[in-house]
Deep mutational scan, measured.
Amino acid sequence: MGTYKLILNGKTLKGETTTEAVDAATAEKVFKQYANDNGVDGEWTYDDATKTFTVTE
């Protein structure tokens, strides 16, 4: 398990959240659902060194 971070750079929603997941693929699924639930759809990037996903609208 590891802690993964999501940085939201949406047009109307900005912020950060974290999740505990077994791997990056699992964290990505959780974060994409979170972003979708909050109406954020954009370009995704992932930094393996910091376990950080970023979505920018």
Rank of each mutant, 00 (worst) to 15 (best):
T18H: 09
Y4E: 00
E16N: 03
N38C: 04
K14E: 08
A35R: 01
T50Y: 08
F31K: 00
G10H: 10
G10E: 03
A24P: 13
T56G: 06
D47A: 04
G39C: 04
D48I: 15
A27H: 00
T50G: 04
T52D: 01
T45A: 14
K29P: 03
T17E: 07
T12V: 11
L8N: 02
D41H: 10
T26W: 09
E57V: 06
A21R: 02
V22K: 15
L6G: 01
F53S: 00
G15A: 13
G2E: 12
D48L: 07
E43P: 07
N9L: 15
F31I: 01
Q33L: 07
A21E: 04
A21I: 02
E43N: 14
Y4I: 01
G10D: 03
M1G: 15
Y46H: 02
G2W: 11
L6K: 00
T19L: 12
K32Y: 07
D37Y: 10
T17C: 05
M1K: 14
G10F: 14
G10Q: 04
K51T: 04
F31L: 07
F53G: 00
D37H: 14
V40N: 03
L13C: 05
L6N: 01
Q33M: 07
E28V: 15
G15Y: 13
W44R: 00
T3Q: 07
E28D: 05
A35K: 01
G39S: 09
K11R: 14
A24N: 07
K5D: 02
T19R: 05
N9E: 10
Q33W: 06
G42C: 02
G39Y: 07
Y34H: 05
E57M: 05
Y4C: 01
K51P: 00
T18N: 07
T19S: 07
T52F: 03
I7L: 08
V55H: 01
T26A: 10
K32N: 05
D37R: 06
N36F: 12
D23C: 04
F31E: 00
V30K: 07
A49T: 10
F53P: 00
T17S: 09
V55M: 06
Q33T: 07
A35D: 01
Y46I: 02
G2Q: 08
N38A: 15
A35L: 14
W44I: 03
K5L: 11
A25M: 12
T45Q: 10
D47Q: 07
F31H: 02
A24R: 10
T54R: 04
M1T: 14
A27F: 00
T3P: 06
E16M: 05
F53V: 01
G10L: 14
I7N: 05
T54E: 06
F31C: 02
T56C: 05
G15M: 13
G42P: 01
T52S: 06
T26H: 12
E28A: 08
A35N: 02
L8M: 14
F31T: 00
T17H: 13
I7D: 03
W44L: 03
G2T: 11
V22E: 08
L8W: 11
K14I: 08
T26C: 05
T50P: 02
G15H: 14
K14N: 14
T18D: 08
A25T: 09
N36D: 15
T19N: 04
A25C: 06
V55P: 01
D37G: 06
G42D: 02
D23K: 03
D37K: 10
D41G: 07
A49R: 08
N9R: 12
K5S: 08
N38W: 12
T12A: 10
T17G: 05
F53L: 01
K14T: 13
G42R: 01
V22G: 06
A49V: 13
A35E: 01
K51Y: 14
T56Y: 10
T50S: 08
D47G: 02
D41N: 11
Y46M: 02
G15S: 13
N9P: 03
L13D: 08
A24Y: 11
E20C: 04
T45M: 14
N36G: 06
E57K: 03
T45W: 10
T54K: 07
G39V: 04
D23Y: 03
M1F: 08
G15Q: 14
V30E: 13
G10T: 09
L6V: 05
A24T: 09
T54Q: 07
E20D: 14
K32P: 00
V55D: 01
L6H: 01
A25V: 07
L8I: 11
T17Y: 15
A21Q: 12
E28Q: 11
E57I: 06
T26F: 14
E28I: 11
K32M: 11
T17K: 15
A25E: 10
K29G: 09
K5I: 12
Q33G: 13
E43L: 09
E20L: 14
K29Y: 12
D47F: 06
G2M: 13
D23Q: 03
Y34F: 15
A24F: 15
T26D: 09
K29Q: 12
K11Q: 12
Y4N: 01
N36E: 07
L8D: 01
E57C: 03
G10M: 12
Y46E: 00
T18L: 13
D37T: 08
A21T: 09
E20A: 11
T52W: 02
K11W: 12
A24L: 15
E20S: 15
K11I: 13
V22W: 14
M1E: 09
T52E: 05
D37N: 06
Q33N: 15
T54W: 06
N9W: 07
E43D: 15
G2S: 12
T26Q: 11
K32E: 04
W44K: 00
T18Q: 10
A49L: 13
T52Y: 03
G2N: 15
T52H: 03
F31Q: 00
L13N: 15
T56Q: 07
K5H: 10
T3H: 11
E28G: 13
V22N: 13
E20N: 10
T12N: 09
D48R: 09
D48G: 09
V40Y: 05
A49G: 07
T45H: 08
F53W: 08
W44V: 02
T19V: 09
E20F: 14
G42V: 02
D47T: 07
E43I: 11
G10I: 13
Y34E: 02
Y46G: 00
T50K: 08
E20H: 10
V30Q: 08
G39E: 08
G39A: 09
K32S: 05
N36S: 11
G42I: 01
V22D: 15
D37I: 09
M1R: 09
D23G: 04
F53E: 00
F31G: 00
N36Q: 13
D48Y: 07
A21D: 02
D48W: 14
N38K: 14
T19E: 04
N9C: 05
T52L: 05
D41W: 11
K11M: 14
G10R: 04
T18P: 02
D23F: 03
T54F: 05
T3W: 15
K29F: 14
E43Y: 09
T18K: 11
G39N: 11
D37L: 09
N38M: 14
Q33Y: 06
G39P: 02
G10C: 05
D47M: 06
T45N: 10
E28Y: 13
A49D: 13
A24V: 14
L6Y: 01
K51G: 13
T54C: 05
G39I: 04
T26G: 10
T52G: 02
M1Y: 12
G15V: 14
T18C: 06
K11V: 13
F53D: 00
E57Q: 07
F31Y: 02
A49K: 13
A24Q: 09
L13F: 15
G2V: 13
V30T: 15
Q33D: 14
G42H: 02
T26P: 02
I7C: 04
I7Y: 08
K11N: 12
W44D: 00
F53I: 01
V22C: 05
E57W: 14
N38F: 14
L8R: 02
M1W: 13
E28P: 00
V40F: 13
K14W: 12
V40E: 03
T50V: 09
T54N: 05
K29V: 10
E20V: 11
A35Q: 02
T50A: 09
T54A: 06
W44E: 00
